[in-house]
């Protein structure tokens, strides 16, 4: 028996469920120095905005127990640069390309979706309504159902590409946000983005990050992410991409058993840029060990007396 690792993500079929997360793999070129991108289920490229963004001043990162805070601030060269200079190379890498887009307004999300609809090689769009490190846009949309719905439906009307809404965990009820996205036309959901956090140097009384607050990621957030995936999977019918602290197959399995169709590796790449390969291999081993033919059969297979 050769285990079948392919998964369906709405209209997309991925060769395996292991993707790399937006903001953690740039636009693929540096990661390709460490592993062939064709080994991935998909790549989600860095948050792309209509116009270039310089990003936040340093320090932008701070390590925390089993995790890290970041406040990069969506540094990128804008959507035109992506189309002209980054997509041509990425298209040659034999990997589905998902573009994470971040607008400051609902109109900018629609404009980004419209521009990328015509760009060859884009497999899907991920809507960044959950970045905690920018003043305008970002998480401001992701923390209320109307914001999530407006952005999702604006993008939905502007493109035929599959739409993935990336949800923020910084909400009282993640299920409400998920339902708002699905009702507005999302083909899939990514969860979770980073948890808003903060660290202080007591000696200087200064914040560790120039931005003062930042997004917490890494192994420390995994239990929160698994819980949210589990809650949302029971409430909506669209596929879920689970992420938060994944760097090994056993972590990915938690998300899949909780109800995720696919997973993203983000911060895990910083510690080991080759860990996606180990996760794919580990999933295959697990399936062989447990006699699972199709990975989809494991999705939502939580054994719980509830």
């Amino acid at each position: 028996m050769t285990p079948d690792l392919s998964v369906r993500l709405g209209p997309l079929t991925l060769r395996n469920p292991v993707m790399v997360a937006s903001g953690c793999c740039g636009f693929g070129q540096e990661l390709a120095e460490w592993m062939p991108l064709s080994a991935l289920g998909a790549i989600v490229v860095k948050g792309t905005t209509l116009r270039p963004r310089r990003g936040n001043p340093p320090p932008r990162v701070w390590e925390t127990p089993a995790g890290m805070l970041n406040a990069i601030g969506l540094q990128n060269d804008g959507v035109q640069d992506l189309i002209e200079h980054k997509l041509p190379w990425l298209r040659e890498q034999d990997v589905p390309i998902i573009v994470n887009i971040a607008g400051e307004t609902v109109g900018e999300f629609a404009e980004l979706a419209r521009v990328l609809d015509r760009a060859p090689g884009v497999a899907a769009l991920e809507l960044n309504v959950s970045c905690p490190n920018v003043r305008a846009g970002g998480m401001q949309f992701g923390v209320c159902t109307t914001g999530v719905a407006e952005v999702t439906s604006a993008a939905r009307e502007a493109t035929r590409l599959p739409i993935i809404t990336k949800l923020s965990p910084n909400v009282t009820d993640i299920v409400e946000m998920a339902r708002a996205a699905v009702d507005a036309g999302a083909d899939a959901l990514s969860l979770i983005n980073t948890l808003l956090g903060m660290a202080i140097d007591p000696e200087t009384r200064r914040p560790r990050l120039a931005n003062i607050t930042g997004g917490l990621s890494g192994p420390a957030v995994r239990p929160v992410a698994v819980r949210m995936v589990w809650q949302v999977a029971r409430a909506v019918r669209v596929p879920i991409i689970g992420l938060g602290g994944i760097s090994r197959a056993e972590h990915a399995l938690e998300f899949i058993i909780a109800g995720a169709s696919a997973v993203c590796i983000g911060t895990g790449l910083f510690a080991d840029p080759r860990c996606p390969i180990a996760v794919v291999d580990g999933l295959r081993d697990y399936m062989e060990r447990h006699g699972i033919e199709r990975l989809g059969d494991l999705r939502g297979a939580l054994e719980a007396a509830v």
């Binding site: 990003g55 932008r60 990162v61 910083f270 840029p273």
Partner: peptide, 22 residues
Amino acid sequence: ERMACGIGVCMGCAVPMAGGGY
């Protein structure tokens, strides 16, 4: 500079440049 990945993917170790940007 404070660094996370060290391999160019995270954009964490930003150095301000004389010509603008990081």
